[in-house]
Amino acid sequence: MTHVIELEGVAKRYDSAGAPALGPLDLSIAQGEALAVTGPSGSGKSTLLNLVAGLDKPTEGTVTVAGRRIDQLSEHALARFRRERIGMVFQFFNLLDDLTVADNIQLPAQLTGTARRTAAARAGELMEVLGIQKHARTYPGRLSGGERQRVAVARALVNRPALLLADEPTGALDTASGQDVRDLLVDLHRGGQTIVLVTHDLALAQACASRTIHLVDGHLALNTHAEAVR
């Protein structure tokens, strides 16, 4: 089985004298797997996501993503790695308010140097799939929460990343919009997209994930496969 993510003995301390915020932790995620990370606030979910995304570096251990040790990469190499291999979806969307929907989606592609026309075509394709094409020239501030999260998902997928990371993707949405995003993630998983989903929402985890891990105080408390959760 090919693993997209491999964490070996990973620990992260923010305070050298205190207990680690995460780990030590060993974790592997296979290609095409959808992993839900649950746990109470302060359990280390976001820290785990940041380490996998290369937004932060572990204090101990190694982080390998898509076959590459990212804990040793420079900031520049990490940025290149992120834009080519990872798509991110955030709780509060993190869309750039002064760019149109289409421009937001194209941005990661343009950062890789993709030609504008190619990036626009890919963005158009994603907008059509996600049903937001009519908003292409709209600014994010005028969209509903669900629509904004769809834009965020489209932006995360524009470079066809090996890994999609989602941090509480329904946390800021009403029920209907949350359901909308949940369906979208399920579709992506079915399409073979590897997903790591951080959430408090067990229903979301059950719906989208093939495996769920539960963190408590930075340690793995539970590791269950979909059938067991259901």
Binding site: A79, R80, F81, L96, L111, R155
Partner: peptide, 16 residues
């Protein structure tokens, strides 16, 4: 700074 953080999360390098 937040927008810049978003850009960096999307893969904007330090040089960019």
């Amino acid at each position: 700074v937040h927008d810049l953080g978003v850009c960096k999360a999307l893969g904007m390098s330090p040089r960019q």
